[in-house]
Design a protein around this nucleic acid. Sequence first.
DNA 1: TATTGTTATACTCTATAACTATA
DNA 2: TATAGTTATAGAGTATAACAATA
Lengths: 176, 176
Amino acid sequence: MPAPARKAAHRSVARSARARPLRKSPQARKSVERTVDLGGLNEHLGYFIRRVQVWVFQDFIRVLRIVDISPAQYSVLLVIDANPGLSQAELARTLGIERARMVRVLHRLDRRGLTRRLRSSADGRAHSLRLTQKGQETLRRAATLAQTHEARLIERLGAEPYKAMRTILREFRSMP
Amino acid sequence: MPAPARKAAHRSVARSARARPLRKSPQARKSVERTVDLGGLNEHLGYFIRRVQVWVFQDFIRVLRIVDISPAQYSVLLVIDANPGLSQAELARTLGIERARMVRVLHRLDRRGLTRRLRSSADGRAHSLRLTQKGQETLRRAATLAQTHEARLIERLGAEPYKAMRTILREFRSMP
DNA sequence: TATTGTTATACTCTATAACTATA
DNA sequence: TATAGTTATAGAGTATAACAATA
């Protein structure tokens, strides 16, 4: 359910300190550039959650570019793989993606030959979702790359903080 | 730098268990609806980070609807307030928002009379950003509401996990 | 009546390229 | 040559409403 990004762009905050003449103007404005104060933002966890989340998506997209699978597509493939035959509505509710949005996501995966939509035998309205052979192969390749991404996240957060966040957030997920 | 949402929509995963006849079809498909397996997604912290982040934005937007301030706008107001006179480029880099995107954000805040863009005396190219009187008042009201949101997040995560994540993520932020 | 898949509309956000005016 | 502000464009995501077929 993410917002893919094409390229790593955002960097901000900590810019690589580059040596420069550093003119002594009244406020020495230029030298301040690297130390902008976040102000009250420091008191909002949501801001920092957003920053990590953006980093995660950018890294994920970069690492999985070879297979051209976005975070949203990856989540869809994994859930179909784990629940063959489930419907679009079930899938959408599970991942928190709008039903209307899911239609396009699946259209695209179908066009690429990664998924199939069969008429459900139990419910005439519903589609029964499956991965194709190619879909399973692509998922396998994607999963390997996704592990690389995960390793980078662990390295970046530190093993202990990573485990701590895992415990905390998997709990959060199941809440009402 | 967020993606505002109009209304709380996403719910998914844990649906309020509703009593139902529960027909005993071969796979009892319907009863499965509430227990769709996330599969390999369980091994990706990024997925859970994304879910909390979405919750945070939705809650923030809902709580601050009275003042009509989005997460992105709020972050912009806070940073300008803490660094009066900074330029658009500095602001954009600090928050990880594209320079081009920042133009529109500030246009809108200017139109609402919350911010001002003055010509910088030090650099003829740059704008010197300030909050107006109205901007400061709006920020004050927004900050009060944002504290309400923060309290909800703490309640939702638990005080200890909240503090733990705060420590972890504020560290993450300053990394290269 | 409610749900499923679908189409359509409006808006936000990201990424990119290009232009101008300054430095 | 590089940077600041700007405009424009393409694509993805979100929120909503509405519709036909089916339950």
